[in-house]
Structures are given as structure tokens and as C-alpha cells.
């Protein structure tokens, strides 16, 4: 993995957003969406390949956590919060 392409980074970003959206918990979902957007924006201008590779490796680890935890969030569910519309966005 010597040089990271723009497509790879974009793909990673999409995966993060998708998995964050899979959280059933309102607060966790919004937190991970917010953090994902902020940290990708923060690192948008990183050019140093070594630093990029490090970010990428860490991001893959975090993505693993997000995938597992969003699944768990779908298995152990609770009533929706008073700020949450009962109809989900998908439907």
C-alpha cells in the first residue's frame, strides 16, 4: 500500500457513513456521523503518504469496530427518543 488513491479514501468515507447510519441508537448514530464528517474534512489536505497510510490503517480498525457495534445496536434495541420521528428515513 505505497500510495493511497482518492477512490480508496472516498470508498472508506462511504463505508463509515453507511455503517454509522446503521446504528439503531440515535445518539451513537449521530455521533459517528458527525465525527466521520469532521475527521475526513480535517485530514482532507494531508499529502504526506506515510501519514496517509497510518490514517488509513487506523481508519480500517475503526471501521471494524463500527461494523460490529452497529450490528449490536440493531440487536439490542430500545424505544425511540422523543426527538426521533417514528418513521425511518428509508421508508
Amino acid at each position: 500500500m505505497s500510495s493511497l488513491t482518492r477512490t480508496q479514501v472516498l470508498g472508506l468515507y462511504k463505508q463509515f457513513i453507511k455503517n454509522a447510519n446503521n446504528f439503531n441508537d440515535y445518539n451513537f448514530k449521530n455521533y459517528f456521523l458527525r465525527r466521520t464528517r469532521a475527521s475526513f474534512r480535517e485530514n482532507r489536505d494531508v499529502k504526506d503518504q506515510e501519514k496517509l497510510n497510518l490514517l488509513y490503517t487506523n481508519a480500517l480498525k475503526d471501521l471494524g469496530v463500527l461494523k460490529r457495534q452497529s450490528l449490536i445496536s440493531q440487536m439490542y434495541t430500545f424505544d425511540k427518543l422523543v426527538v426521533e420521528p417514528l418513521k425511518t428515513e428509508h421508508e
Partner: peptide
């Protein structure tokens, strides 16, 4: 009583 919204309190 906001119908159409959930019931769990904000923490």
C-alpha cells in the same frame, strides 16, 4: 404529546 415521535426521554 408529540405523536409520531418516540417516547424515550432525552438523556
Amino acid at each position: 404529546e408529540n405523536t409520531g415521535f418516540g417516547t424515550r426521554p432525552i438523556y
